[in-house]
């Protein structure tokens, strides 16, 4: 799956760089290649490759393409690297044809999950050594369980992944990815989490009180334009549902 994704990204980059150079947008071409090389290849794919193994042929394929495309920008280092594993001269190497690549989109789900977990950990100040368990609820649950090796391997501090029909009952950090939710178990100090939720509750109650007064004011209700009134009412409903969630969590 990661292979499909990186090949798809490579094809897209190849297309962007080619078009940008032909349109004299040299900085955009370099930015696109830089983004692929650093953010996609180095930060993601090489990390995945360490876990999934046996990727040397695809890695060499990608590397060759990267060197070919970087050559017009940075000819010396690319030619030096090229000659370490090729007999021909990079300067004359034809750019590869753009192969339409698809099927890489689901890797984006894994990336989002991993990034989401990392962010949640840092926001909640979970010490890096603390291992957690991830319980996944929602449409992408099976996919994430299937790719548990990546989910655990890529600096998430997750040691196990399982799917569930509904939210677990114990204290958890919730990571929301669209309709799919990940609950990190074992991360939370129950006392601290309770304090955090209480504070959140207080906050929401204040907001709700303020909004309610406003919406009970007949003058405001009669004068405010319809769309503003609607927006305020929606906001109130959202606060109330969040408050209900927090109350549930506090009871649990």
């Amino acid at each position: 799956m990661a292979d499909k994704w990186i090949l798809q990204e490579l094809a897209m980059t190849r297309k962007t760089v080619d078009e940008s150079i032909r349109n004299f947008e040299f900085a955009a071409a370099a930015d696109s290649l830089h983004d692929f090389t650093w953010n996609k290849l180095a930060d993601w794919y090489l990390e995945v490759a360490k876990i999934e193994k046996e990727k040397s042929s695809i890695l060499i394929y990608i590397l060759k393409n990267v060197l070919i495309m970087w050559h017009p920008f940075i000819p010396y280092v690319t030619e030096t690297l090229w000659e370490s594993f090729n007999d021909d001269i990079l300067m004359m190497k034809q750019w590869p044809a753009v192969a339409e690549a698809t099927g890489g989109d689901s890797f984006a789900v894994i990336q989002e999950a991993i990034t989401g977990i990392r962010n949640a950990r840092s926001e909640n100040k979970i010490e890096p050594a603390r291992k957690v368990k991830a319980v996944v609820v929602g449409p992408n649950a099976d996919l994430l369980v299937e790719q548990a090796a990546l989910l655990c391997g890529l600096r998430t501090g997750v040691e196990a992944v399982e799917s569930a029909q509904s939210a677990p009952n114990e204290a958890a950090i919730r990571v929301v990815l669209g309709e799919t939710e990940i609950y990190l178990l074992g991360a939370v100090d129950p006392e601290k989490e309770k304090a955090r939720l209480s504070k959140e509750k207080e906050n929401l109650e204040k907001l709700i009180a303020g909004l309610s007064i406003r919406l009970e004011n007949q003058e405001f209700v009669s004068r405010a334009p319809a769309h503003i009134l609607k927006a305020e009412q929606d906001k109130l409903a959202r606060y109330q549902s969040e408050l209900a969630n927090i109350n549930d969590a506090l009871k649990a």
């Binding site: 040299f26 900085a27 370099a30 920008f73 940075i74 010396y76």
Partner: peptide, 16 residues
């Protein structure tokens, strides 16, 4: 820094 670094610093951020 090497010619490549000089080239890249001049290419990235350059617009006509």
């Amino acid at each position: 820094y090497g010619a490549d670094a000089v080239r890249l610093s001049l290419l990235m951020g350059a617009t006509p």
